[in-house]
């Protein structure tokens, strides 16, 4: 059976069962995505690995590969042929617990502004370099930085990192709950009508041309 991207019961499934080692699996996955004509950025993908069990780190890596192509891992499926397989129910949890640290390619700026108070509605702060805020950023407040933005509190307002066009900048907060996030020339907002409450630090950065939010390990 050749590895392939299949549409199974309306869901996209990539079969990685044929690969023996994890390294081959990764290579195969990249090949499949490149060759596939079905996959479009933004899609949610199931990955089937047969009997093999992957560590959290390996799952993370698969997720990273998918993200590089603008795809999201929906579920990691194991055991039995696709369609009849028992889904690993704890997977979504595993993925949620997959914290990441600050990325290594995070740009460094010489200047960093340290703000030791809450930013309230109507208040604005700007710095050419990084901004670190020891407090909350409330709705209606704006933080604009040429570099990275770190909020040691709740970010509920608007934050713009890489205001001069640096796409490698990040926005991190102990609680990331913004009205809008901007990184370089990308603008995102939380989805309408969905309330997502995450009780953990999070980090936003650009991956494959999209603003992606992930849990942050501090």
């Amino acid at each position: 059976m050749s590895a392939a991207v299949k549409i199974w019961e309306g869901e996209n499934v990539i079969n990685l069962e044929i690969y023996d080692t994890f390294a081959e699996m990764k290579k195969g996955l990249q090949k499949e995505i490149r060759q596939s004509k079905v996959l479009l950025p933004g899609m949610k993908i199931n990955v089937y690995v047969g009997d093999k069990s992957l560590t959290d780190k390996q799952i993370r890596e698969i997720e990273d590969i998918l993200l590089d192509y603008g795809l999201h891992l929906k579920e990691l499926m194991t055991n039995g042929p696709p369609g009849k397989q028992k889904r690993k129910e704890s997977f979504s949890k595993v993925s949620e617990e997959g914290f990441i640290g600050f990325p290594e390619d995070m740009p460094e700026y010489e200047e960093t502004a340290l703000i030791r108070r809450n930013l309230r509605s109507g208040q604005k702060c700007f710095a050419r370099g990084n901004i670190v805020i020891l407090g909350d950023v409330n709705p209606g407040a704006e933080v604009i930085a040429g570099g990275n933005i770190i909020v040691m509190g709740v970010l509920r307002g608007m934050a713009h990192a890489g205001a001069f066009g640096d796409e490698n900048t990040v926005i991190a907060a102990l609680r990331l709950n913004p009205t809008q996030l901007r990184i370089a020339n990308h603008i995102t907002r939380p989805p309408d009508g969905e309330v997502i409450i995450v009780n953990a630090p999070e980090i936003a950065r650009i991956r494959a041309g999209k603003v992606v939010i992930e849990k942050l390990k501090i």
Partner: peptide, 12 residues
């Protein structure tokens, strides 16, 4: 609450 937040900022 939003306006109150703004006012508190101005008061401060």
């Amino acid at each position: 609450v939003r306006d109150a937040d703004r006012i508190i900022g101005l008061l401060e």
